[in-house]
């Protein structure tokens, strides 16, 4: 995985980016909750939500193609889960409603995640009195995801350069031993991070 797309746009200077994180989070949650209770007869609400999201996306100055690609990447899940509704009375209608609700919620979430750096999200969680242990785990995770993903990519490349077999059993084994190595490396890094935290005056 390439991870540079992650916060490529989360630090742009735009009116949307400049809004406080809590306001954006609240707006996203409100929209998502409204979608959760939306009925087919509420179609004007869906239109309003769409208009708001398009306006938000336009104001955010994030390239529309990027946002659409993110949306399309996650859309298959939405459509597949929604097919479940086809087996109910009035299935076509339910299906369309589910897809609309879910897609709009997803769009709101994508807009939120791409206009709010994760550091601000963490600060928000801290202020919402999420247990500090969980926030610390999240902060460390966000910091080291990039390091570990690079490490995993290196492992996979090294393995690919030496693997000649395509047998399924063997590739299961090699994936698992790659994951095992990754865990060992993570736990060793955790030891070193702990040492560094202590050296920097961290008090548990």
């Amino acid at each position: 995985m390439r991870h540079d797309f992650l916060d490529r746009y989360s630090r742009l200077a735009s009116p949307v980016h400049a809004l406080p994180a809590w306001l954006k989070a609240l707006a996203t949650l409100t929209l998502v909750m409204a979608m959760a209770v939306a009925r087919p007869s509420w179609w004007p609400a869906l239109v309003v939500a769409t208009a708001l999201l398009v306006a938000g996306a336009w104001l955010s100055r994030i390239p529309a193609g990027f946002l659409l690609r993110r949306l399309l990447l996650l859309e298959p899940v939405v459509v597949v889960v929604a097919t479940l509704a086809l087996w109910q009375p009035d299935g076509g209608m339910r299906f369309a409603l589910l897809v609309a609700r879910s897609t709009l919620s997803l769009a709101a979430l994508i807009l939120f995640t791409n206009t709010t750096p994760f550091g601000e999200v963490l600060e928000l969680l801290r202020r919402c009195r999420v247990p500090s242990l969980l926030v610390t785990v999240l902060a460390l995770m966000y910091r080291y995801v990039f390091v570990l993903v690079d490490e995993a990519a290196r492992l996979q490349r090294a393995r690919a350069s030496r693997a000649f077999s395509r047998s399924a059993a063997r590739s299961w084994r090699s994936v698992a031993s790659g994951a095992g190595q990754l865990f060992v490396r993570s736990s060793e890094r955790a030891e070193r991070v702990f040492t560094a935290m202590c050296a920097r005056g961290w008090r548990p």
């Binding site: 890094r189 040492t195 560094a196 920097r200």
Partner: peptide, 23 residues
Amino acid sequence: LYEIRRTVGLLFQDPDDQLLCPT
């Protein structure tokens, strides 16, 4: 201990071990 750690700053070999915050 904490006074000592404030007086003596340690630079680790791998900066990825030492840089532990998101920003």
